[in-house]
Simulated scan of single mutants.
Amino acid sequence: MSPDAAPATVLVFSQRAEVRAAVRTALGRSPAPDVGPLTYVECATGDEVVAAVDRGGIDLCLLDGEAQPTGGMGIARQLKYEIADCPALVVLIARQADRWLAHWSLADGTLAYPVDPLVAADVVAGLLRERLAQRPAVRR
């Protein structure tokens, strides 16, 4: 990680703690030399996700499409319609055939579960670069 790497806050949503842990492990502290360190916010319910995004400061959400009772795809669609400055959204899908549903949800990207660390780093770093480039410049 370079000293100029941009810090980012990533929300990880699943009602299953093992899914949240697998996502954090796959991404690690920094998905790319120019992105990170990552700070994680974990949510186990849809209401927690909406409240965290409403508070602001979230750069990217990783949403479990298989979560119950409210899945990540429904939450993604809700966030896109309700949040003016919506963070980047990635939906975890169990089957590649579910990509069309993730597209319907207006997600910015998808990751297959179980999460491949190389693919996850590439997808997340790309979306975070776009998101962080839109931030106002910070004076030092």
Rank of each mutant, 00 (worst) to 15 (best):
S2D: 12
A6H: 10
T9Y: 01
V10E: 01
L11M: 13
V12K: 02
V12Q: 00
S14C: 06
Q15L: 11
Q15W: 12
E18W: 14
E18L: 12
R20S: 10
R20I: 11
A22K: 02
A22Q: 13
R24E: 14
R24Y: 07
L27Q: 03
R29P: 04
R29M: 08
S30D: 08
S30Q: 12
A32N: 11
A32H: 09
P33E: 13
P33R: 13
V35K: 03
V35N: 03
G36E: 02
G36Y: 01
L38S: 08
L38M: 12
L38N: 02
T39C: 11
Y40I: 06
C43E: 02
A44W: 01
T45G: 09
G46T: 09
E48F: 06
E48V: 03
V49C: 04
V49N: 00
V50F: 12
A51Q: 15
A51Y: 07
A52M: 08
D54V: 08
R55Q: 15
G56I: 13
G56P: 10
G57Y: 05
G57L: 06
G57K: 13
D59F: 00
L60P: 00
L62D: 00
L63W: 07
D64V: 13
G65A: 13
E66Y: 07
Q68C: 07
Q68A: 14
P69Y: 06
P69G: 08
P69H: 11
T70Y: 08
G71F: 02
G71L: 03
M73W: 10
G74W: 03
I75M: 09
R77T: 07
Q78R: 15
L79W: 04
K80G: 06
K80R: 15
Y81S: 14
E82N: 11
A84D: 14
D85I: 07
A88E: 11
A88I: 05
L89G: 04
V91M: 08
I93T: 07
I93K: 03
A94H: 13
A94W: 11
Q96G: 14
A97R: 15
A97P: 12
R99S: 09
R99A: 12
A102K: 01
H103D: 14
W104T: 10
W104P: 07
W104G: 05
S105V: 11
S105T: 11
A107S: 11
A107I: 04
A107D: 02
D108W: 01
D108N: 14
L111D: 00
L111N: 00
A112E: 11
A112F: 01
A112G: 10
A112Q: 04
Y113I: 06
Y113Q: 10
V115A: 10
P117K: 06
L118D: 15
L118T: 14
V119H: 09
V119E: 14
V119R: 10
A121Q: 10
D122W: 06
D122G: 09
V123F: 03
V123W: 01
G126S: 12
L127T: 04
L127E: 00
L127M: 10
L128A: 05
L128S: 01
R129W: 08
R129N: 08
R129G: 08
E130D: 14
L132E: 08
A133I: 05
A133H: 12
Q134Y: 05
P136N: 07
V138P: 01
R139L: 11
R140E: 04
